[in-house]
Design a protein around this nucleic acid. Structure first.
Lengths: 133, 133
DNA sequence: CTGAATCCTTGCGGATACTG
DNA sequence: CAGTATCCGCAAGGATTCAG
């Protein structure tokens, strides 16, 4: 026997899938990295990440908090103040993401030349893909 | 002056953004890992990843090839045969992704308990997020 | 077998408005 | 300030068809 696995190798049961469902979107990663060094307030976070909407930021923070990657800290001041801090758990993930970032920087040139080569070979006329002709 | 930077810290100019635009979707990562060990044919890949549509698989492969992460190999047999192999460049990325996978496995229990705690605290009554409808 | 092209549905995510 | 709720456009992506 030995092959008890119901699905194929990369089915939903693979923990990689579970992980990817959590952090496979850039916003989650960016927010995680944004709170990596110190607790950050909501609006400051919104300004830092820059480009994220407040709705998505809220969703992302809830998701990150649910997964135990960030922690929500509340100070009941006159105007309520909330900050989000990375957890030890989240820090572990952030370190790996940091490696990804380092790799991206390090291989940036290679990536760009590969893209240029591919685009030239395919002779794509416009800069990018103009979905609708 | 001196602040020539148009945007903030995590703007689009950050290489992290460039990386995330490439691999922030689970399909790209899954396909990359699927071809990590050996060249894989198209339909075999479609079966391996399991859940991916042929359209998205094609798009993902083109994207990965464009970024120099995988290489397209063609054998002009009677019925055409094509296989996709990981490149040295892609292997570097795959190794980091492998760390992610290891981290996910290693911290799986912690993640689940964190989620359970969060869900209990929020007292989400019905089936929380039912991934599919 | 390996794709490209079309259609069409889903839901992500942006903008806006409202509450505490 | 810190969110939640609503509306809605648009693009990702699933199913299907056609081509090499």
């Amino acid at each position: 026997m030995a092959r008890k696995l119901p699905q194929g190798p990369l089915s939903a049961s693979c923990p990689t899938r579970l992980l990817l469902d959590q952090i496979a979107n850039k916003w989650a990663v960016l927010v995680l990295m944004a709170v990596r060094d110190e607790p950050v307030r909501f609006n400051e976070l919104k300004r830092t990440v820059e480009g994220i909407s407040q709705k998505v930021l809220g969703q992302t923070l809830q998701q990150l908090e649910r997964n135990g990657l960030v922690e929500r800290q509340v100070w009941s001041l006159k105007p309520i103040a909330v900050a989000y801090a990375i957890t030890p758990h989240g820090r572990g993930l952030a370190e790996i993401v940091e490696q990804l970032r380092a790799w991206a920087v390090q291989t940036l040139g290679r990536t760009q030349s590969a893209q240029a080569r591919f685009d030239a070979r395919q002779a794509r006329p416009p800069s990018v893909r103009v979905h609708r002709a």
